[in-house]
Simulated scan of single mutants.
Amino acid sequence: MADLLAGMRILVLEDEVLIAMDVEQLCRDSGAAGVVVARSLAEIDPDRAASEFDAAIVDVMLDGTSTLAFARHIQERNVPFVFASGYTDLDEIFSAFPGVSVVGKPYSGSDLVEAVAAAARRRSSGV
């Protein structure tokens, strides 16, 4: 798992402080060159996200606010991402974002990192 995110710049949208810290460390331990954590949508401009990050980990809800519009925005700009969420009604996500992985909370670090790496590989291979 040490090099799965080698050199990548990762955006993490997560409002739970301890989870955000854990995910940030997981990404760094997996070789990420940079990790930025945003705890609310107000903290990150979606256009900046599309131009500055190689991949994203997106919680479905941040402090009670849906992140689906943000996810759609970065998807349209070809930023690979995965959803990491404790959200239980996933039908809307699966239908709106076919092919995007959803890693359920609580998740293992290896599952999350492997899902991000796979999303990045799909983008680079044009799939």
Score class of each variant (00 low, 15 high):
residue 3 D to F: 08
residue 4 L to R: 07
residue 6 A to S: 10
residue 6 A to T: 08
residue 7 G to Q: 03
residue 7 G to A: 04
residue 7 G to L: 02
residue 7 G to P: 00
residue 9 R to F: 12
residue 10 I to S: 12
residue 11 L to G: 10
residue 11 L to W: 13
residue 12 V to A: 00
residue 12 V to S: 01
residue 13 L to V: 06
residue 13 L to Q: 05
residue 13 L to Y: 05
residue 14 E to P: 00
residue 15 D to I: 04
residue 17 V to Q: 15
residue 18 L to I: 11
residue 20 A to M: 08
residue 22 D to M: 14
residue 23 V to A: 02
residue 23 V to D: 00
residue 25 Q to M: 12
residue 26 L to I: 07
residue 26 L to N: 03
residue 26 L to H: 04
residue 31 G to V: 02
residue 32 A to W: 05
residue 32 A to C: 08
residue 32 A to R: 05
residue 33 A to N: 09
residue 33 A to M: 09
residue 33 A to C: 07
residue 35 V to Q: 02
residue 35 V to L: 06
residue 36 V to I: 11
residue 37 V to A: 05
residue 38 A to K: 01
residue 39 R to E: 10
residue 42 A to D: 12
residue 42 A to K: 13
residue 43 E to V: 07
residue 44 I to M: 14
residue 45 D to Q: 11
residue 47 D to R: 04
residue 48 R to D: 13
residue 48 R to W: 13
residue 49 A to E: 06
residue 49 A to Y: 08
residue 51 S to K: 14
residue 51 S to W: 12
residue 53 F to M: 07
residue 53 F to N: 04
residue 56 A to N: 13
residue 56 A to V: 12
residue 56 A to P: 12
residue 57 I to V: 15
residue 57 I to W: 05
residue 57 I to G: 04
residue 58 V to H: 01
residue 58 V to P: 01
residue 63 D to L: 10
residue 65 T to R: 11
residue 66 S to H: 01
residue 68 L to H: 01
residue 69 A to W: 00
residue 70 F to Y: 08
residue 73 H to Y: 07
residue 77 R to I: 06
residue 77 R to A: 08
residue 78 N to M: 05
residue 83 F to T: 01
residue 83 F to Y: 05
residue 84 A to G: 14
residue 85 S to E: 09
residue 87 Y to C: 10
residue 88 T to W: 12
residue 88 T to H: 14
residue 90 L to M: 15
residue 92 E to Q: 15
residue 93 I to S: 01
residue 93 I to V: 08
residue 94 F to D: 15
residue 94 F to H: 15
residue 96 A to N: 07
residue 99 G to W: 12
residue 99 G to N: 13
residue 101 S to P: 13
residue 104 G to Q: 08
residue 105 K to P: 02
residue 109 G to S: 06
residue 114 E to I: 03
residue 115 A to T: 02
residue 115 A to E: 00
residue 115 A to S: 03
residue 116 V to N: 00
residue 117 A to N: 00
residue 118 A to E: 09
residue 121 R to K: 04
residue 121 R to P: 00
residue 121 R to W: 03
residue 122 R to N: 10
residue 123 R to T: 02
residue 123 R to A: 06
residue 124 S to T: 11
residue 126 G to P: 04
residue 126 G to E: 07
residue 126 G to Y: 08
residue 127 V to P: 08
